[in-house]
């Protein structure tokens, strides 16, 4: 298993290089270092020297992908791409266009993101599993039929409506919770309740409907018949036999997104004014700060790949049939 994990992690390297190449190309296809310098220096003070100085200062004075002047390995390494990419691999995200340290920003803003994402995630999963189990238990009855209809209706509503309506009702009409904002320490709690509730509610429709299909798929299997033939009750069958098997697809789907919780939710955080990584990204988008966007892309990709490895490991934990080789 160790060998398998190491292999997966090694495989991540070419993927991360590919990702960087992609974002890099995407950006420099439309933008030259000169353009960047001009935008940042402002229109007035643009002189050739100033541009050159700006470029040298930030390491943009080298060729993009291939350095004809150098030979051997250096023709690849002494380039903008290499210099900027290699640093990402040691998680040095460099500086934003306005000079702030991106790495420090990320470390700082990670916590508010987690403060919302983790409770939303945990409560959401538990509720989804419970509702799905209820639907599966009452399968074929009206509870199931209307439950599914409700789920479909709920998943047809955009998350933005949940947020706006939630804010309108809970904060503006009933004055129960603050509309938006954030505070440090425990005082943050009252700011967290609304986003968490909305996050959970908006996910219930899709989640419980999906998990219901997992249960139903298991319920039709032969081992369930065996369990019934042994004289177990429907509840015992559902909890002891079906649940454990249905947990395999549920858990593996869930584990993949755990690392991505760090990234926060763009929409949630910006609506509720949470100073997390999601709103960080949105700010960067609005300021067209490419350095931050690229850093977030890289971070997101690493977390995604990490999630995949975690998924594989979690398979071995919940499903004894799976062995990583």
């Amino acid at each position: 298993m160790i060998a398998y994990i190491i292999r997966r992690l090694l495989y991540a390297i070419p993927i991360l290089i590919g990702i960087n190449l992609l974002t890099f190309t995407l950006f420099f296809m439309v933008n030259s270092p000169d353009d960047m310098a001009r935008v940042h220096l402002g229109v007035k003070r643009v002189t050739t020297e100033a541009i050159e100085a700006w470029k040298t200062d930030r390491g943009y004075d080298k060729p993009l992908l291939y350095n004809y002047k150098e030979s051997g390995i250096k023709s690849f390494s002494n380039t903008i791409f290499f210099q900027h990419t290699v640093r990402l691999f040691v998680l040095d995200f460099g500086r934003a266009d306005d000079g702030r340290d991106i790495g420090r920003d990320i470390r700082q803003r990670m916590w508010p993101s987690l403060a919302i994402a983790v409770p939303t995630f945990i409560v959401g999963i538990l509720l989804n599993i419970t509702f799905a189990m209820l639907l599966a238990f009452f399968r074929g009855t009206y509870v199931d039929v209307w439950g599914v209809v409700l789920s479909v209706a709920m998943m047809s509503i955009s998350i933005m409506f949940y947020i706006i309506l939630g804010q309108l009702i809970m904060s503006k009409l009933w004055h129960l919770l603050p509309i938006s904002g954030y505070d440090s320490g425990l005082r943050a709690l009252k700011f967290l309740i609304l986003p968490v509730i909305i996050g959970v509610v908006s996910g219930i429709g899709a989640g419980s409907r999906l998990y219901r299909t997992f249960y139903l798929e298991e319920i039709n299997k032969d081992y369930v018949r065996t369990a019934r033939a042994k004289g177990l009750s429907s509840l015992q069958v559902l909890f002891k036999h079906v649940l454990r098997n249905a947990m395999v697809p549920i858990l593996t789907g869930v584990v993949a997104i755990i690392p991505l919780l760090f990234m926060g939710s763009l929409v949630m955080e910006s609506f509720f004014g949470i100073p997390g990584l999601g709103s960080y990204t949105i700010d960067a988008i609005n300021q067209q700060d490419f350095a931050i966007v690229r850093a977030m892309v890289f971070l997101g990709s690493i977390l995604y790949i990490f999630g995949l490895v975690l998924t594989d490991i979690s398979y071995t934990l919940v499903d004894p049939r799976v062995r990583l080789e």
Partner: peptide
């Protein structure tokens, strides 16, 4: 009733199936 049948199933009348592969719960020992 289903309740009473549980006293019969497995206790007085037991059953084994064709496919031992799929008839056993794969995630339980």
């Amino acid at each position: 009733s289903e309740q009473d049948m549980r006293e019969i199933r497995g206790r007085r009348i037991a059953m084994i199936f064709q496919e031992p592969q799929s008839s056993l719960n794969p995630v339980m020992t």
